[in-house]
């Protein structure tokens, strides 16, 4: 009875029932995450987009900038999450202009949360918001399906995340330096890609510190070993 009807979570509680997506909709089968570290935050994601078992895009960029040092990871419906990210990007831009100061990660989180909560019946969007600002440093927020808002030391999401709860819990340390932090994200996403059929391709990362945003790319044919420059 617990998860019988359509449009519900699967028994494992993570996989979005495909009925929830509109017919033929592109699904970000996805492994995404964001973590806090000594100097800020790091966002990471795989690059696979699927329609059913077909890989619609093997080099997707699921890390989306909504302000200078505020980014998000998208999972769920590609169309829904893009629309939501576009709206928030616009609103944050306006905020900067109207108030003469940069929005904080919290401003972004509040905007994302409002959209996801008020439109919960229409959206399938699982988002992780991560950003850096002078006052708060790096911050990570998770907004799962129903539109609740959770502040976390690190957040994982998407179908691939089920496979790495153990890895992340066992290897997580607070206050890591950048190299350790990058390796933590990479190690976790490698496992997710390995076990989750809906995740795959390259590993993308964005490192957010007071110095701004810095992109990383790791490729499967080198076993994600070296950063692609």
């Amino acid at each position: 009875m617990e998860f019988g009807t359509t449009g519900m979570l699967n028994e494992d509680g993570i996989h979005v029932d495909m009925e929830r997506l509109k017919k033929g909709e592109v699904n970000l089968g996805t492994s995404i995450m964001a973590i806090n570290f000594k100097d800020g935050v790091i966002l990471g994601a795989d690059s696979r987009t699927t329609t059913g078992a077909y890989i619609a895009n093997r080099v997707t960029d699921k890390l989306t900038q909504v302000h200078d040092t505020i980014w998000c990871c998208r999972s769920g419906s590609a169309a829904d999450t893009q629309a939501v990210a576009d709206i928030v990007q616009y609103q944050l831009g306006m905020y900067g202009i109207m108030n003469g100061r940069q929005p904080t990660t919290q401003t972004a989180a509040a905007m994302f949360q409002e959209l996801c909560y008020e439109n919960k019946d229409r959206l399938s969007a699982g988002l992780i918001i991560a950003g850096w600002d002078e006052r708060h440093g790096g911050q990570v927020y998770s907004i799962p399906l129903g539109g609740s808002l959770h502040k976390q030391p690190y957040a994982i999401g998407g179908s691939g995340s089920t496979y790495i709860y153990g890895y992340c819990d066992a290897n997580w340390k607070e206050g890591m330096d950048e190299e350790e932090a990058v390796n933590f994200v990479k190690g976790a996403l490698q496992e997710a890609i390995k076990w989750d059929g809906s995740s795959g391709g390259v590993i993308r990362m964005v490192v957010l510190t007071k110095k701004g945003a810095n992109r990383h790319l790791y490729l499967p044919d080198t076993n994600y070993a070296v950063r692609h420059e």
Partner: peptide, 13 residues
């Protein structure tokens, strides 16, 4: 605890 189905997803709620 805040559960996500049977997953114990958020433990600081």
């Amino acid at each position: 605890l805040a559960s996500y189905g049977s997953l114990a997803r958020f433990t600081d709620v």
